[in-house]
């Protein structure tokens, strides 16, 4: 491994993949979590149980499932996505979406239920009511975002299985650490580990700063 351009490329790819997966999870998770928190429909508790179970999905199981789907003989094999960054993004989205859905739902359910009545009583439309509740729950919602990002930036099993750890193409920080450790290159593995920790800290520090703005 040459230093540092390759490490820069690996770091950038890790960030791009995990940020995209977290972003997609947010786009899926915010509306679905809101629906589960505020909606009244048959099977709601069942779907909540599914989501809560999904929050603890083992990444290797997700990796296996996504690999089977994207494998050349699998249902989406024609799309040639296996061993591409897109495959890792799909797997990471499957891992982080339930986290975002579950924590969004919990955040909104923890608000005083009378706030909805109060918002309607001030003339809010349904969307204005939802927007106001999101704003009110902004601290736990940002925590959901942080948890979603945390669940994928540090994940290794699924990325390895669907990405294949191909140099310059699908190698991310976690899979590179596994590779270097396997080769006995502990110094490089350790440096990559510290880099991963630093990135995780910086992203969470930025989100925490946004979250705590105005708090005393």
């Amino acid at each position: 491994m040459t230093f540092p351009p390759e490490i820069f490329q690996i770091t950038l790819l890790s960030l791009q993949i995990s940020a995209l997966a977290t972003g997609i999870s947010l786009l899926i998770g915010l509306p679905l979590g809101t629906l589960l928190a505020l909606g009244k429909f048959w099977g709601r508790s069942f779907f909540l149980s599914i989501v809560n179970t999904g929050m603890g999905l083992p990444p290797v199981v997700v990796g296996l499932f996504v690999a089977m789907m994207l494998w050349r003989s699998g249902p989406f094999g024609d799309m040639n996505l296996i061993y591409t960054p897109t495959a890792i993004i799909i797997a990471q989205t499957v891992i982080s979406a339930p986290v975002v859905i579950g924590l969004t739902s919990a955040a909104l359910q923890s608000l005083d239920p009378r706030l909805r009545l109060q918002l309607y009583g001030l003339g809010a439309s349904r969307w204005q009511m939802i927007w106001a509740l999101w704003r009110e729950a902004r601290l736990p919602l940002l925590a959901a975002l942080m948890a979603g990002f945390g669940s994928v930036i540090s994940e290794v099993g699924a990325s390895m299985m669907v990405g294949g750890n191909i140099r310059y193409q699908t190698r991310v920080l976690t899979t590179a650490i596994v590779l270097e450790t396997g080769k006995g290159n502990f110094e490089i593995a350790l440096a990559l580990g510290v880099l991963l920790l630093l990135i995780t800290f910086l992203v969470n520090w930025a989100l925490t700063w946004i979250q705590q703005r105005g708090e005393e």
Partner: peptide, 13 residues
């Protein structure tokens, strides 16, 4: 509609 009606009122709980 519910929203049009509610915009004529105000609620204090």
């Amino acid at each position: 509609s519910d929203t049009a009606y509610r915009r004529k009122i105000a609620l204090v709980m």
